[in-house]
């Protein structure tokens, strides 16, 4: 299988406190991979390192063969990587629709914008069509003209997924996409994300909801204190002694059996 993202020996310490200690894994196109681990195990730092928000101390990160570890976040986005944040903050003075349009950064230069012209109008029309499509798929059509900051926490999560998709990414990284999202909507999200994977978009998902992981992911990466302690299918997690110890605790994980 070809690989899209390769992470090799990534290490990061904050003030001497090692947060990532030689993380290795790879993801192929269209693959759905979950990242789980206890709080403080380095999941969000891993996402920040890959997306360029946190410079790594050592190691290599490659997307489609291109090294990412010294690039700024906007350059990494240009190579086809999009992400969402754990706590998505949204603009107060922009509507949901406008935020989605702003998430499409093509042709935003000063002169192109000021002068306008046929190409600029065509780009704007294309962006509006795409934004309208994602509004529908993410069930946000009803709040299209609401200030984005006024959305509920769950709706902001959906909007941030929509923003990430406006850039046609090859790899989408979601930081706790279901936190605060209604269970019914969670089911729709599973179907929607599987649809994205079927189109060849790889997904890397940090999540605590083991049901969601079990339904969606083909593979799980288990982090503990900055190390990958297991890589297996969600069904195999409950048989992994290190996983049980590090994350799931001694009590038997009912949710995992449901996911099997």
């Amino acid at each position: 299988m070809s690989t899209l993202l390769t992470v090799t020996g990534v290490t990061k310490a904050f003030a001497g406190n090692a947060v990532l200690q030689g993380v290795d894994f790879a993801i192929g196109p269209g693959e759905i991979v979950g990242v789980i681990g206890p709080n403080g195990s380095g999941k969000s730092t891993l996402l920040n390192a890959i997306s360029g928000f946190t410079p790594v101390d050592a190691g290599r990160i490659e997307l489609g063969g291109a090294p990412l570890q010294r690039l700024a976040p906007h350059r990494i986005h240009g190579l086809g990587l999009a992400r969402t944040f754990q706590l998505p903050a949204m603009p107060e003075k922009m509507t949901v629709f406008e935020v989605l349009l702003a998430a499409d950064n093509r042709r935003h230069g000063f002169w192109a914008s000021l002068c306008g012209g046929a190409e600029q109008r065509a780009q704007e029309a294309a962006s509006r069509a795409l934004a309208t499509q994602w509004l529908g798929e993410l069930l946000l059509t009803g709040v299209r003209d609401t200030p984005a900051a006024a959305l509920s926490g769950g709706q902001k999560k959906l909007l941030s997924v929509g923003c990430a998709l406006m850039g046609n990414p090859r790899l989408l990284m979601l930081d706790e996409p279901t936190a605060g999202v209604h269970p019914n909507l969670r089911r729709d999200m599973v179907a929607m994300l599987q649809g994205l994977a079927a189109r060849g978009i790889a997904l890397l998902i940090v999540e605590h909801d083991m049901h969601f992981i079990g339904e969606l992911c083909q593979r799980c990466i288990v982090l503990d204190r900055g190390r990958v302690v297991a890589q297996c299918t969600p069904a195999q997690l409950s048989q992994h002694p290190q996983v049980l110890q590090a994350y799931l605790g001694s009590e038997h994980p009912v949710v995992l059996e449901a996911a099997v």
Binding site: S51, F53, A72, P73, H74, H77, G78, A82, R83, F85, P88, A89, M90, P91, E92, K93, M94, E98, V99, A102, A103, N105, H108, S160, C163, A164, M166, G167
Partner: peptide, 15 residues
């Protein structure tokens, strides 16, 4: 406007 309101979001959207 996106830069003014949410710079981190703008940056990870490729600006």
């Amino acid at each position: 406007r996106l830069l003014r309101e949410q710079p981190a979001l703008a940056s990870c959207l490729g600006y």
